[in-house]
């Protein structure tokens, strides 16, 4: 560890600041660039739109942040979003909005518990388990719907509309939900014993076990939190669209992971925060929005997002190694 201290001290001055705050700096440069080219970009209306659209990815990313700090991955959230959205929309007309939400949340938690059992208790590799779950849950969704899209018939009269379309004190409800989830999970991670255990398990699982921490339970719980957040995201998405395709969540798992990584939460576990993830979500949202405003086709986002993520990961490891280029790890 003395070694790590030495290397981190080696990165001093401008280069060091750049590497450590690289993501924030890149964000600011992006914002200024977009603002110069499009006067619409920094209007409060546009900013609200961006955050509202980012809320779904944001809520999910906050849950996944807990998993990643604990030293694992969750790629299953994409198809879990499809499943949960389909379920809540389909049940809405059948059993009523409140009941639909309740049933959907329980079902989503069951999926999260399965992840948690396989990864926490059986100690299987999280990448493989959640990648498998990604495909399994998509299959489950299609079996449930028989391939049919689902929708809500009385879209104008149901109070379910409030989650995706409503406003409170002039603020869109998705933004409020995003904020509330962020604050709650932040408090859990930063100020509760459970949060401390998540950091310990992610930072050094062996030392955590040697300190009497039940690693299995801590990891399993992180997947429950992740699943619950995805359930909430499904409420927002279902309410906004008032219907759902079978694969509506496809690709979300990568956006979510991208946001977590962009924020600077280490994939190795043990460090990171909800605040960082919120920044990552916003960066992602503003980049996509800015590119649209500049008139690029929406698929250009995919390319640019990838470049930004690679850049972020590179700067992150460079800050740890103490140099930008390294022949050996």
């Amino acid at each position: 560890m003395a070694e790590a201290t030495l290397t981190s001290n080696r990165l001093k001055g401008l280069g060091g600041t750049l590497a450590k705050q690289g993501i924030l700096i890149a964000f600011i440069v992006f914002m200024i660039g977009f603002a110069l080219f499009s006067e619409k970009f920094l209007t409060s209306g546009n900013v609200m739109t961006v955050i509202r659209q980012a809320a779904i990815v944001g809520v999910m990313a906050i849950g996944v942040t807990v998993v990643v700090i604990g030293g694992n991955l969750d790629l299953s959230v994409g198809s879990m979003l499809s499943f949960s959205t389909v379920l809540v929309v389909d049940l809405h007309d059948k059993i009523g909005p409140g009941e639909a939400i309740a049933v959907m949340l329980v079902a989503t938690l069951v999926l999260g518990a399965l992840n948690g059992f396989l990864i926490g208790y059986l100690r299987l590799n999280s990448l493989i388990v959640t990648l498998g779950m990604l495909s399994a849950i998509q299959g489950l969704t299609l079996i449930y719907t028989g391939g049919q899209n689902v929708d809500i018939s009385h879209q104008d009269t149901t109070w379910f509309a409030v989650f995706g379309r409503g406003q409170v004190f002039g603020l869109p409800v998705p933004i409020l939900i995003f904020a509330v989830v962020a604050v709650i999970v932040h408090v859990v991670l930063a100020y509760t014993p459970y949060g401390r255990r998540v950091y310990a398990v992610g930072g050094n699982p062996m030392a955590a076990v040697f300190s009497g921490i039940r690693r299995n339970r801590v990891v399993a719980c992180s997947y429950l939190i992740s699943a619950f957040c995805t359930g909430i995201a499904a409420v927002i998405l279902g309410s906004r669209v008032m219907g759902s395709q079978n694969n509506v969540g496809q690709g979300y798992e990568l956006l979510v992971l991208a946001a977590v990584i962009l924020g600077g939460t280490s994939l190795l576990g043990g460090s990171g925060s909800v605040l960082k993830t919120v920044i990552g979500v916003l960066i992602l949202g503003f980049i996509q929005n800015g590119l649209l405003l500049l008139g690029y086709a929406y698929y250009v986002q995919w390319l640019v997002t990838w470049v930004v993520i690679i850049l972020a990961v590179w700067l992150d490891v460079a800050a740890k190694r103490g140099r930008l280029f390294s022949p050996i790890a």
Partner: peptide
């Protein structure tokens, strides 16, 4: 280093880890 400590955590957090609950 492998079993005793979470090196990336503070002195205080390491010391209170077993009884944090």
């Amino acid at each position: 280093k492998e079993q005793g400590l979470v090196l990336g955590m503070s002195c205080r957090d390491n010391m209170t880890l077993p009884q944090i609950g």
